[in-house]
Structure formats: C-alpha cells, structure tokens
C-alpha cells in the first residue's frame, strides 16, 4: 500500500531527539554530513557510525521503520557500489577478465561509498522522522533569516516548503483513494506490458491533478480570507529557544567533527 511509504514522514514521539530545537537538528545534520565526507579510513567511519547508532537509539524510532524507508534507495546503493568496483583503478588487479579489471582499491572504495550514502540517508531520515514539517520549516526560516538582508524572500520560501511538505501525506492518501476507486472498477495496475501499465496510470493521474489544483485553489482562498500577506510583522505561536539539551548536542557535534578530523590527519 502507498500508505506504507515512510519517506519524509514524521513519527511523533517524545525522545530527546524529538525535543531538540529544529535548528540544532539542521545544524547537526550539516555537521554530520561534513564529518561523513571528511571521514576517509575505517576508524573514522566507525566513529561516525557509532554516533549514528547512538542517535538512532536515542530517537526510539524502531530500526525496522528506518530500514523500510531505505528500501526504495537500495538500487542507488548497489549502483554506486558496482560502479566503484569496476571503475576504480589501482596498482595490481585482483581479477582481470577481458576489459573487466577489479582492483583491491576499487572494492574498498565501493564499500566506503556505500557506507557513506547509507549513513547519509539514515541521518537525513532521522531528521524528518523526528521533526514535524512545521517545526522543520520554522527552523529553516530562522536559520536563513540573515539572508533577508539580501532581500531574499525567506519567509515565502519556507512557507512554500511547509505547504509542500504538509501536502505530501495528503496527496499520498488521495492517490491511495483514487487507486482503490479505480481498482473497484476493475483497473489493473499490476500486470501487462510497459505501455499498458503507463496507460493504466491515466485514470489515477487525471483525478489526482484535478484535485491537487482544486486544493491549491481552496488553500489560497482560505489564506486570503485570513488576510495572509507574507512574513512582515508576523509573530510565531511557538518561539524557538535553545535549551540545555541543544548545547549538549552542539558539544557532541564538535566532538564528532574533531574526532573525525584527528583520525583523518593522523591516519589511524
């Protein structure tokens, strides 16, 4: 069922990770990605992995949900791995078969790249799993607010993002409903040749687009009725404030980055 797609979904909870300020989590994610891309040997990867495992454990998100969320990305993971195995050159080929030459370096690199992508995705998933879309965009708006001085429409951008995120589950639900309704009329989405399958999507896409436009129209009217006119002079119901927990998180981030850099420099 489409409903089981967990990509970008929010899992409500009350773990320390859930309670962190969204800005902390965004900065953490950036720092984490920096650490991940700085890491270059086994030890540093292990450190990043341990941090990830620690955060996952803290978040109380069941491991199963994280792994099911990864399912659609398995192809990219394997693709990257294979590409790296075949196209990295080193000193002495392990296997040489015609044009195919596999080097030791290639295999190591493939493993590193796959681990990197895997941890990257897990990290971003954790952010969306533990942060509601609204607080996420709130945090983003607050982090980007210095750019307002450059006349960048920060509020409008984050509002657009908020609306887009907000409507993902709604559209998924809608697609589900329309699919069921067309299935009830005997539509078959699971069998047939490629062209037939593409054609079978028309009865879903047409109503879906119509309803998306209708919703957009209704939302615009509703916002205008409440005198929405952009970010100027708008106050927030939930003010973002850093708490002790956030400072602890920042400290941890500094430790992580330092550890990875040290391991890289001294090449342990």
């Amino acid at each position: 069922m489409l409903k089981d797609i967990t990509l970008g979904q929010y899992f409500p909870g009350n773990s320390p990770i859930h309670r962190l300020d969204p800005r902390t989590k965004l900065i953490w994610l950036i720092g984490y990605i920096v650490a991940l891309f700085t890491a270059g040997n086994w030890a540093s990867y292990l450190v990043v992995f341990l941090f990830l495992a620690f955060v996952v454990a803290l978040s109380t998100i069941p491991l199963k949900s994280i792994l099911t969320g990864l399912k659609p990305l398995v192809f990219i993971l394997i693709f990257t791995g294979v590409l790296n195995v075949f196209f990295t050159t080193g000193e002495k080929p392990l296997i040489a078969f015609g044009v195919i030459r596999i080097y030791r370096e290639g295999i190591i690199r493939a493993v590193f790249m796959m681990a990197r992508i895997f941890m990257l995705i897990c990290g971003t998933f954790l952010l969306t799993y533990t942060t509601s879309p609204i607080s996420l965009t709130d945090g983003l708006e607050s982090l980007l607010s210095p750019l307002k001085k450059l006349r960048l429409p920060v509020h409008e951008l984050s509002m657009m993002m908020c609306i887009a995120l907000r409507f993902i589950p709604t559209l998924i639900e809608e697609t589900d409903k329309i699919m069921s309704a067309q299935k009830a009329r005997g539509a078959d989405f699971e069998s047939g040749k490629l062209m037939q399958r593409v054609k079978a999507l028309i009865p879903i896409l047409v109503p879906l687009f119509i309803s998306a436009f209708r919703r957009a129209d209704e939302l615009a009217t509703a916002m205008e009725c409440r005198c929405y006119q952009g970010g100027d002079g708008r106050t927030k119901m939930k003010l973002l404030r850093y708490k002790l927990l956030d400072f602890k998180a920042f400290l941890l981030l500094v430790v992580l980055i330092c550890a990875v850099i040290l391991l890289r420099v001294f090449g342990l």
Binding site: Q182, A184, G186, P203, V206, P207
Partner: peptide
C-alpha cells in the same frame, strides 16, 4: 469479485477522468 461487488466510494465524482461521460461509465 470486484465486478460482482461494486463499490462506490465517498465523493465518487472526484474519480472521473475520461473525456466524455460515456467513456467514463464504460471504464468498468
């Protein structure tokens, strides 16, 4: 059994998609 048991959903009008009424009714 989908053909033997016909199900009309809530607000079924949002599931119309064809160019003409005739074609839409003929879908099933």
């Amino acid at each position: 059994c989908r053909f033997k048991v016909g199900l009309v959903f809530q607000y079924p009008e949002y599931q119309l998609f064809e160019e003409t009424v005739y074609k839409d009714i003929a879908f099933g």
